[in-house]
């Protein structure tokens, strides 16, 4: 189905990607392609296998079968190169609570190999973008969850990656914080960044260029939100989801 020459506009690709934990198959032979510049929504109920799948795409987990590609590079073979091209934000907002806001950015800039001056200039821009400039010297532990989440995003992308993978970035925060976060995602997408985002909020799915819906480790639907609604003859993504999950 996929031809190798079409790879240059494909940011993320998975073929028969499978992960088993003992007898349990968390991700069951999924196929997907994400175009460059897309906001790709990776939907599914809790426990559907979203996190396992996204971890395989980042090279954090080895697939039991199948393969994933980032910008045409196979994840299993070029893990190191891929790490420079992606930014990953895990479900847990991996920040150091005993570091100040600015120190978290500095640290992640440092381990991406940026120089001191690069970090300094980039961090100021980043703090402004994240609307965290006034919290520069606040201890991370004291930040409200919504702010932490924006900081976590900032920490995942100090190297300006072409692809950002976000695992449930908005879980547990209030609607205003969610809106602010999605504004950031739009901003990034407009500048050409590919966004791969998992969520179980169906209103967020409406914001995506295309979505896939995962049920028990399998992708049961993959299209634009508008097309999916038409196929299922419903008016909201919420109803699309319920129909697919219950069938």
């Amino acid at each position: 189905m996929s031809k190798p020459e079409s790879n240059n506009h494909i940011a993320v690709k998975a073929e028969k990607l499978t992960r088993r934990f003992g007898d349990f198959t968390a991700v069951n032979s999924i196929d997907l392609q994400v175009q460059k510049g897309e906001i790709f929504g990776f939907l599914g109920a809790n426990g559907a296998g979203k996190t396992t799948a996204i971890r395989m795409l980042c090279g954090l987990l080895r697939p039991s079968e199948g393969e994933a590609w980032i910008e045409g590079l196979p994840v299993s073979k070029s893990a190191e190169k891929i790490k420079r091209r992606i930014g990953y934000m895990s479900q847990k907002f991996s920040l150091y609570n005993d570091l100040k806001v600015w120190e978290n950015l500095e640290f992640y800039g440092g381990i991406y190999g940026l120089s001191k001056s690069e970090i300094e200039s980039a961090s100021d821009i980043m703090l402004a973008r994240l609307q965290l400039a006034e919290y520069r010297n606040t201890m991370t532990v004291e930040l409200p969850l919504g702010f932490k989440q924006r900081l976590a995003l900032g920490c995942a992308i100090p190297h300006n990656p072409g692809i950002i993978l976000l695992d449930e970035p908005t879980s547990g925060v209030d609607p205003i914080a969610r809106r602010k976060f999605w504004d950031l995602i739009y901003e990034l997408a407009e500048s050409g960044t590919t966004i791969f985002v998992t969520t179980h909020y169906m209103d967020e799915a409406e914001y995506c260029s295309r979505v896939s819906i995962m049920v028990h480790g399998k992708i049961v639907a993959l299209d634009t939100p508008r097309e999916l609604k038409k196929q299922q003859k419903v008016t909201t993504m919420q109803d699309v989801f319920l129909k697919l999950v219950e069938s």
């Binding site: 090279g59 990953y88 847990k92 991996s94 991406y112």
Partner: peptide
């Protein structure tokens, strides 16, 4: 435990670093 290792592992940092 805190989950920060997961984040570090997605960066190009090496085990020896």
């Amino acid at each position: 435990e805190t989950g920060t290792l997961e984040q570090i592992l997605t960066t190009p940092v090496l085990a020896r670093n």
